[in-house]
């Protein structure tokens, strides 16, 4: 119910309504494609076809940033609601994650469009695509719990999160492929939980994106660690959080 209201609130303001969740990622990937593929010419960044390569990773990335950014504000915006709602406060985090997920799912036709434009159909490993979505959902829920509860205690966290996200954008294989990173750094790169998940998104088109099982395991276990840390922190900070609301 809350999710529905959230979406309604967001889209009634604009004339094009739900179309925006399609147009925004489409426009942004076109811009990035122009810059990195057309203007910079034949650089060995990423894999071809670059438009598809980019959009497969950038949509999940936007899902990630939007959700994490929104979760810094969850309990600042819901003042008053928490005072009387008999629901557990985790619901508010779940609501943010869910509504951003819905947006992500709505933006998926961009990938379909990119596939149609480039005539590059995914292979058998495409099966990992939904798994990657599920993993990212769980990761976001964990990070959301962590960030939303911590930002009540430390209001400055919202700014820090913005910077960290910007750094992660360049540290994750979004504009480039994991194979652009020197082999020796792969294990270090894998500490970033998004590396593993983004790899799973791309594996259907480019099997070489999957480098080693070990890197994937590291990546996913960091994600699991974040999930557990999120649940634990949220549980510890719950009394404080309810007081502030």
């Amino acid at each position: 119910m809350l999710v529905l209201r959230d979406l309604q609130k967001k889209y009634t303001k604009f004339r094009l309504g739900y179309l925006w969740s399609l147009l925004e990622p489409l426009g942004m990937s076109l811009v990035l494609w122009l810059v990195f593929s057309v203007l910079l010419g034949e650089r060995a960044l990423g894999l071809s076809p670059y438009l598809l390569f980019l959009s497969v990773a950038i949509l999940p990335w936007w899902w990630f940033t939007k959700c994490v950014n929104a979760s810094t504000k969850i309990f600042r915006r819901s003042r008053g609601e928490l005072a009387f709602a008999t629901l557990p406060p985790q619901i508010w985090v779940m609501r943010t994650v869910l509504s951003s997920s819905v947006e992500f799912v709505f933006s998926l036709p961009v990938i379909v469009l990119a596939v149609a434009l480039t005539q590059d159909l995914p292979g058998m490993y495409f099966l990992f695509f939904p798994i990657a979505i599920l993993l990212q959902f769980l990761l976001l829920y964990g990070v959301g719990l962590l960030v939303s509860s911590l930002s009540i205690v430390i209001p400055d966290l919202a700014r820090v999160v913005k910077i960290v996200l910007r750094a992660m954008f360049y540290l994750s294989p979004i504009l480039y492929s994991i194979s652009n990173i020197p082999q020796s750094l792969h294990t270090i790169a894998a500490i970033n939980p998004l590396v593993g998940i983004l790899g799973l998104y791309r594996i259907g088109w480019w099997p070489e994106e999957h480098t080693s099982m070990a890197a994937l395991v590291i990546s996913l276990s960091v994600a699991a660690g974040l999930f557990i840390a999120g649940i634990y922190t949220f549980h510890r900070l719950k009394p404080r959080l309810l007081k502030e609301a």
Partner: peptide, 21 residues
């Protein structure tokens, strides 16, 4: 305080009722 001014009365009823469980 939790009601949204851009929602109709019916929508608000569902929203608040849902929050009350």
């Amino acid at each position: 305080r939790a009601m949204g001014p851009t929602f109709t009365v019916r929508q608000n009823a569902y929203l608040v009722g849902g929050l009350l469980g």
